Amino acid sequence: MPYSFETIACVTLEPHSTLAHPTTPPEIVKLDSPAAAVMTNFKVVHPISTRPEVAIDVALKKMKTSGVRLLFVMNDADQIIGLITAKDIMGERPIQITQQTRMPRAEITVSAVMTPQPDICALDAQAIHDARVGDIIETLRKQGRQHALVVKTDKATQSQRVIGMFSTSQIDKLLGYNVTTEVHPARSLAALVGQIA
C-alpha cells in the first residue's frame, strides 16, 4: 500500500528569533576528565571500513571524503583484520615497497601497509571505566600509538566487539592543545597534570 504524505504549513520566522541551546554547557575536557569524554563511541559515530585488496590511494580518498584519518580493514566475514591510517599511506612504507619491489604506487594495496590485527592495541571497556583522559594519553604514549580500540567482551561467548576508539588527534582537539607531543614520561596522572599546568 503506497504511503500518503501531507504538506506541513510553514510559519514565518519572526524578528528577534533566537536559537535554542542545551540546558547545560558543553563539558570542558581536562586531563582528569573521565576517559569516556574523549572516546569516539561507535554507538553514535559509524566506523568507516575498507577491504585489504583496495589500493592505498583509494583508501586515502575514502578517508578524506569521510572526514576520518583511520579505516578498519575488514575481511569477507566482516571481521577486523587490520587498521590503516592516513599516516600509514602518506608515510615511508609505500615508498619502501616501491623501492624494494619496483611496484607502482597505484598497485600498492591496503594489506601491504596496514597494521595487522595481532599488532592492534585494544583496551577493555571494563578497564577504562574509571580511567581518566591523562591515563589514556599515557597509555598511547607508552605504546607508541596514535589509536587504541575499546573492546567489550561477551562473557558467554568470549567474543570481542569494538565499541569505540581513542585517538591522539581527537584528544588534542577536545583538550584544545597538542598534549600528545608535549607530554613526557610521567609516573602518575598527578605528574602528568603537573607537566601541562
Rank of each mutant, 00 (worst) to 15 (best):
D76H: 10
V11E: 15
V58R: 14
T85R: 03
K155I: 02
V29L: 06
I136H: 01
K61F: 13
N41C: 08
L31Q: 03
P2I: 04
R51H: 14
D135E: 03
H147E: 03
Y3S: 14
R141Q: 08
A9C: 02
L70F: 07
S66E: 13
T180C: 10
S17E: 05
E14Y: 09
K155D: 04
A35I: 02
Q143Y: 00
M103C: 11
K173D: 03
G176T: 02
T7S: 06
I8L: 07
S169P: 00
C121P: 01
K62P: 06
T101R: 08
L71I: 05
K155Y: 00
S66R: 08
A36P: 00
E107P: 03
I137C: 09
T12A: 13
G91A: 11
S66P: 06
A156M: 03
G134V: 03
A36I: 09
S66N: 11
V113C: 13
A191Q: 15
M39G: 01
V58F: 07
A35D: 07
I28V: 15
I80L: 15
G164M: 08
Q143A: 12
P185W: 13
M39D: 02
S66C: 13
K64H: 12
V110I: 06
R161Q: 15
P26R: 12
P116M: 10
E14K: 14
L192W: 07
D154M: 12
G176K: 05
V193K: 14
Q158I: 01
A9K: 09
S167R: 04
T168R: 02
M90V: 07
T109L: 09
I28R: 12
C10S: 12
C121Y: 10
I196W: 06
G91D: 07
V183N: 06
T101W: 06
K152R: 14
E182W: 12
H184G: 07
A190V: 10
L140K: 01
R102G: 04
R102P: 00
T157M: 02
R102D: 09
V68M: 06
L123C: 04
L174H: 05
M39E: 03
V11Y: 11
E53P: 02
H129K: 05
A86W: 01
S169G: 04
A122T: 11
F72Y: 14
A59C: 00
T85V: 08
D119I: 05
A148P: 02
I120N: 10
M63Y: 10
P22Y: 13
P26Y: 09
V54P: 01
V133Q: 08
V113R: 08
L71G: 08
L123T: 01
T180F: 10
L189Q: 12
F5P: 00
V193H: 05
T50A: 04
Q100W: 06
T181W: 02
I120K: 13
T85W: 05
F42E: 09
K64A: 14
Y177G: 00
I136M: 10
K152D: 12
V151Q: 14
K173L: 09
I95H: 10
A20D: 13
L13N: 03
V58E: 15
N178S: 10
G82W: 11
D124H: 12
V11R: 14
D32A: 04
